[in-house]
Design a protein around this nucleic acid. Structure first.
Length: 413
DNA sequence: TGTCCACAGGAAATACGGGGGT
DNA sequence: ACCCCCGTATTTCCTGTGGACA
């Protein structure tokens, strides 16, 4: 091909992409990439659209006594993931801190983020870091020492101290030690007026708490309901304004994304992800975002979930899945049965340098894969030819292929 | 009707691994 | 550094099962 032809072709393609640009500011489709101020700006708009109104009002009435120098009780907040608990509370506490500053009420708030599971030690350590009371330790310092440092850091502070403990149920071991410290010991040892705010996504969270702590803990409760379709539409609209060229979004797209998201989770983050994927696909195809593209994006996200699930699964589980896929596809047969699949599984393990588990454990793995709906299995009895499980894979062929490739890569086979 | 296949799946035993205490 | 403890993963052992077949 003539060099000029190639050049023209490439330039034409680039021009075409520019003409059909859909995404104006990619960063606004992914919260991770936004800096704090921008996040707050987005939030502000969301709240201005009357989303989370009820919850904010409850928070307000809970904290109102602070401005009258009263001491409110502690607060527990429940809601599923992606319902905006963390963001709403941070936003609210920011505002509250501002208001208090204006009215000369001393108030500090700290956000203790337990979004990854951690034992009591790390939680205390993080808290100490937040209060500038200590540096980060891996070990080598006793819990008592940490507690003392926290206490001495606060020894001269007499105002309000709001401690926002995010995702409390991630406290692994010794959670009672931590809770006892926060609920019983700390308030007695420091002059500050302590207000604890616990966020959790499980309703039954206080149930497995030390009864002594629980009875001591006076709680007010706020529940965050999942977003409904209308809320999600508002949230999405804001994102569209910031991130996309509006004319590239066909009518009904937002409604559709919102409906899909509210139907099966009500998680705002996932709704935005779906919008982002749609925009991305549309841009790649050089078209506007249409309803079909949303469907397409939805199924891709769905598929991606399966692939990441298998990618992050333990290797044994991967080997088991590989065996099932081999059995179902290679022999052009619909169903596999336990004995045969187990045999294939042993071979897989051998190839991947794993020690095969026993049949018993293998059966449990099949159940697990079934739960993730990576396969379907049910037991049948074949009379005097014994009982077995009929195992089938009910996923699009293309997806099965992707999963298999993923496993091969991961197991190096 | 009894037998027996080829596995399911429960319970208890055991191995493993990581973290805490000394 | 060492040992102990505890929660989890896996194994071992075992009983149960539906229906074809004789």
């Amino acid at each position: 091909m003539e060099p000029t032809t190639v050049r023209n072709k490439i330039m034409g393609q680039i021009q075409h992409m520019l003409d059909h640009a859909i995404i104006r500011n990619r960063r606004f489709l992914d919260d991770e990439q936004l800096i704090k101020a921008e996040q707050l700006a987005v939030l502000e708009e969301i709240f201005n659209a009357n989303v989370r109104d009820v919850e904010i009002r409850e928070l307000s009435s809970h904290f109102a006594p602070v401005l009258r120098h009263d001491h409110p009780v502690h607060l527990a907040i429940w809601g599923k993931t992606g319902t905006g608990k963390t963001l709403t509370v941070s936003y609210f506490l920011n505002l509250l801190a501002q208001m208090c500053a204006e009215k000369n009420v001393a108030l500090r708030y700290k956000h203790l983020d337990l979004s990854t599971p951690m034992p009591c030690f790390r939680a205390l350590n993080d808290l100490a870091c937040l209060l500038n009371a200590s540096k980060r330790y891996k070990k080598g310092i006793s819990l008592e020492e940490l507690m003392l440092r926290i206490e001495s850091a606060l020894a001269h502070y007499t105002g309000y101290l709001v401690l926002f403990v995010d995702e409390v149920d991630n406290l692994r071991r010794d959670k009672d030690t931590f809770m006892t410290f926060l609920v019983r010991r700390l308030p007695q040892r420091i002059p500050a007026k302590l207000i604890l705010v616990f966020v959790s996504n499980r309703l039954d969270w206080p149930d497995n708490l030390d009864p002594r702590v629980r009875s001591f803990l006076k709680l007010n409760e706020v529940v965050f309901k999942p977003y409904d379709a209308v809320d999600l539409q508002r949230i999405l609209n804001i994102r569209v304004e910031k991130a996309l060229h509006q004319e590239a979004v066909e009518a009904g797209v937002i409604e559709k994304v919102a409906a899909l998201a509210s139907r099966d989770h009500g998680d705002a983050r996932q709704a935005v992800a779906l919008l982002a994927k749609s925009a991305y696909l549309a841009e790649k195809a050089g078209s506007r975002i249409s309803l079909e593209i949303v469907d397409h994006a939805c199924s891709e996200i769905e598929q991606d979930k399966y692939v990441t699930m298998i990618r992050t699964a333990p290797r044994q589980l991967q080997a088991a899945m590989a065996a099932v896929i081999q059995c179902v596809s290679n022999r052009s047969r619909e169903k596999g049965e336990t004995g045969e699949v187990y045999h294939l599984y042993s071979t897989c393990c051998h190839q991947a340098g794993l020690r095969p588990l026993t049949r018993r454990a293998f059966g449990d793995m099949l159940n697990e894969l079934d739960m993730y709906s990576l396969l379907q299995s049910h037991v049948v009895s074949r009379g005097r030819y014994g009982r077995t499980r009929e195992i089938s894979v009910d996923l699009p062929d293309e997806l099965t292929g992707r999963i298999y490739e993923e496993i091969k890569r991961s197991l190096e086979m």
